[in-house]
Design a protein around this nucleic acid. Structure first.
Lengths: 122, 122
DNA sequence: AATTTCTACAACCATTTGGTTGTACGTTAA
DNA sequence: TTAACGTACAACCAAATGGTTGTAGAAATT
């Protein structure tokens, strides 16, 4: 399955920043298992309801979760499309990196020194 | 190839936070192509040398790049092992997410309503 | 009708972030 | 030797982050 990469810098900023917090990553894991209300999530953490509410808001702004009204509750659920795009993004990084390593390996495997390059001193 | 996932919460925090900035992501891409000195990197961006120096320090603390001394220069290069671990981490998220979607799909495909669940109103 | 539950949001606070400028020091070049 | 280059680091600043408490409103319960 091919996933398109059409995220703006600002979007990628928001996504990575949202994932740069252990509580928020934990929330993501929880709503992966099944949708949960904000207060149900808040019960799990040693912080105020408002704090958890803010974390959910950060995840929502990043597009990683969505909220749906059910009565007085707000059900939080994951956004699979977005996580696939993040996956594709990291996949691209990994491929670029691997390509560089492969080039270096090939260079080192050559018989003669291909270029004087840097004398590599500490 | 199997990559181990043994990163602490704090490490993952640092990695995601490091990637949550367009300039730093660009630096990562540049050093993927080949190692570069800090000043060579600084020339590329519309900000002070010290600012770029700080960005590199953030990437270094996250373990995404390393620096090596060559004379008066500090050569910045990528850390392939770390990026592979990040890749593995995201891979895990993606698999969890996909598993949930598959479960939901299976549920919806069943003939009778499996459970009354929520009346789904806005 | 009164109370409780779940949520939203404002105000506040300490800390971190991302930028700046300035100073100092080792290394290279003239 | 002197000048220029590359880097490190401190001090400073505005804005964002991550937490708090308090107030208010809509929905459910009693």
């Amino acid at each position: 399955m091919v996933v398109e990469i059409d995220l703006s810098d600002a979007e990628v900023d928001r996504i990575f920043r949202a994932l740069a917090d252990a509580t928020r990553r934990d929330i993501v894991e929880r709503v992966l298992t099944g949708e949960q209300s904000v207060s149900a999530l808040a019960d799990r953490y040693d912080m105020s309801f408002a704090a958890v509410q803010k974390h959910v808001a950060v995840l929502e702004r990043a597009g990683l979760v969505t909220k749906q009204n059910r009565g007085r509750e707000r059900l939080v659920r994951g956004n699979p499309d977005k996580i696939r795009r993040v996956q594709a993004l990291l996949d691209r990084y990994e491929r670029l990196w691997r390509a560089r390593i492969d080039r270096l390996d090939a260079l080192l495997a050559e018989p003669g020194p291909p270029s004087p390059s840097a004398p590599e001193q500490e």
